[in-house]
């Protein structure tokens, strides 16, 4: 049966068409933005495989689907690297199932398409369109359309408030910072975890592409930057995308202070939601994020065809993490880490 939708590959010259669909879409995230896609493209050299979808015979795009094509052992996979969301943005009144079917049919004989979605989007029709799914974790999103004091008292846990008092009592200060100040703390954290790092040029590209939409806060103690957080703002939503701190400063609770500062700033600015990003329930990181309140929402990678769902599984990364710390000096070597990162597009 011929598809009722036509797919149009998006090239670098199609930025305006892309923005026309994405920028006003109520569910669009920073990971759908042209700025994010451009930064990923220029830093990692993946093959862009973004699609604009139009009704058959029509010219006006009715959906946008971001993705980059990466080579695997057998065939290529179109994925959304380094982010939480890559679901299709479909215009109101358009048949989502039809769009998903058209996208699924475009993967080729050995290929696969992975779409990252979250429970909060309410997007449906994957199963009927031939997608399987893999659960990848959970996000927590906090409503910041309230005064910060109200958020702190009503949403933060007692433990979270206690840690903030500790931070306040230990002369820890948080101030706006720059990528240049944040990157050394990020690099230290990656070395501690044995996880290949992003090149600094990627952070700089993001800052350049997003402009005011990329914010850095730094935590200082006794004149030294002991931690930082990198935030990406888009469409009234703030993503806490990267966070790092020195282990020897943890007693001063820099991460609590940084999250609170990001939330307080969001309450004062035109930000409706702070999204704490993906984490796995039951882990320390997830428990940390829960201290700030908010609504949890499940994350999944929807995969077509379903027998290639394993390509979206994060189990392998989890298993590798347990031994990666031993090889940290190699994995995070400036000449090796950024190159390896290209292959870890979780």
């Amino acid at each position: 049966m011929p598809s009722e939708y036509e797919l149009r590959p998006v090239g670098r010259a199609d930025a305006d068409d892309w923005r026309a669909v994405v920028d006003d879409h109520p569910a669009a995230t920073v990971f759908h933005s042209w700025a994010w896609l451009t930064a990923v493209d220029s830093s990692f050299g993946y093959d862009p495989a973004h699609l604009l979808v139009a009704e058959a015979g029509g010219a006006e795009p009715v959906a946008a689907v971001p993705g980059f094509s990466v080579a695997g052992a057998v065939g290529r996979t179109v994925v959304n690297p380094f982010c939480e969301y890559g679901f299709p943005l479909v215009a109101e009144g358009v048949d989502t199932g039809g769009v998903l079917r058209a996208v699924a049919a475009d993967v080729g004989p050995l290929g696969a398409r992975v779409l990252k979605d979250a429970g909060w989007t309410g997007l449906a029709g994957y199963n009927a369109a031939g997608y399987g799914a893999v659960r990848t974790g959970e996000v927590i999103r906090l409503d910041t359309t309230r005064a910060f004091e109200e958020v702190r008292e009503q949403s933060f846990s007692a433990e979270g408030r206690r840690c903030l008092r500790t931070a306040a009592g230990s002369d820890l200060t948080v101030r706006p910072g720059s990528v240049g100040e944040y990157y050394p703390r990020y690099l230290e954290t990656m070395r501690r975890l044995g996880s290949p790092q992003f090149p600094e040029s990627f952070f700089l590209d993001l800052a350049a592409e997003l402009g005011d939409g990329c914010t850095v806060f730094c935590a200082e103690h006794e004149g030294e930057v002991v931690g930082g957080v990198l935030l990406l703002d888009f469409g009234g939503v703030r993503m806490v995308w990267s966070n790092a701190s020195r282990r020897d400063a943890w007693e001063h609770r820099p991460n609590h202070a940084l999250y609170a500062a990001a939330i307080e700033d969001a309450c004062q600015e035109d930000i409706d939601v702070v999204d704490f990003g993906r984490s796995r329930p039951g882990t320390g990181v997830h428990d940390f994020k829960r201290q700030f309140g908010g609504d949890p929402s499940p994350l999944a990678s929807l995969v077509a065809p379903p027998h290639r769902a394993g390509r979206a599984s994060l189990e392998g990364y989890g298993a590798a993490a347990s031994v990666a710390e031993r090889f940290s000096p190699l994995l995070t070597n400036p000449a090796v880490g950024p190159r390896l990162k290209r292959f870890i597009h979780e």
Binding site: D117, Y126, G132, R135, A300, L302, V303, P306, H307
Partner: peptide, 12 residues
């Protein structure tokens, strides 16, 4: 793998 992933997408 197919069965599990399809069940999950159905639930989704």
């Amino acid at each position: 793998s197919v069965r599990e992933s399809l069940i999950l997408s159905q639930e989704w």
